[in-house]
Simulated assay, not measured.
Amino acid sequence: MEIKEITSNKKQFLELLLLADEQESMIDKYLERGEMFALYENGLKAICVVTSEGDGIHEIKNIATSPAFQRKGYGKKLIDFLFEHYRDRSSAMLVGTGDVPSAISFYEFCGFSVSHRLKNFFTDNYDHPIYEDGRQLVDMVYLKKIF
Rank of each mutant, 00 (worst) to 15 (best):
I3A: 02
I3L: 04
K4G: 03
I6K: 03
T7C: 09
S8L: 10
N9I: 01
Q12R: 13
L17C: 12
L19N: 10
L19H: 09
D21G: 06
E22T: 09
Q23T: 03
D28S: 14
K29F: 04
Y30H: 03
L31N: 00
F37M: 07
Y40H: 13
N42R: 14
G43S: 12
A46Q: 04
V50M: 07
T51P: 04
S52C: 11
E53A: 14
E53Q: 14
D55A: 14
D55Q: 12
E59R: 13
A64L: 04
A68H: 15
A68L: 15
A68T: 12
F69P: 01
F69V: 06
Q70F: 08
R71P: 04
K72C: 08
G73E: 04
K76C: 06
K77D: 13
K77R: 15
L78Y: 02
L78C: 11
L78Q: 06
I79Q: 01
D80C: 11
F81H: 05
Y86N: 09
R87T: 11
R89H: 11
S90T: 15
S91P: 00
S91I: 11
A92G: 01
G96N: 10
G96K: 02
V100A: 00
S102A: 11
S102N: 10
A103P: 01
A103R: 07
F106N: 00
F106V: 05
F106R: 02
F109A: 10
V114M: 09
L118C: 03
L118D: 11
K119R: 14
F121Q: 09
F121A: 07
F121C: 02
D124A: 11
D124K: 14
N125T: 10
N125V: 05
Y126T: 01
D127I: 08
I130W: 02
I130P: 02
I130M: 05
D133V: 11
D133S: 14
D133Q: 10
D133M: 02
R135E: 14
R135Y: 05
R135G: 03
L137F: 06
V138A: 04
V141E: 00
K145F: 00
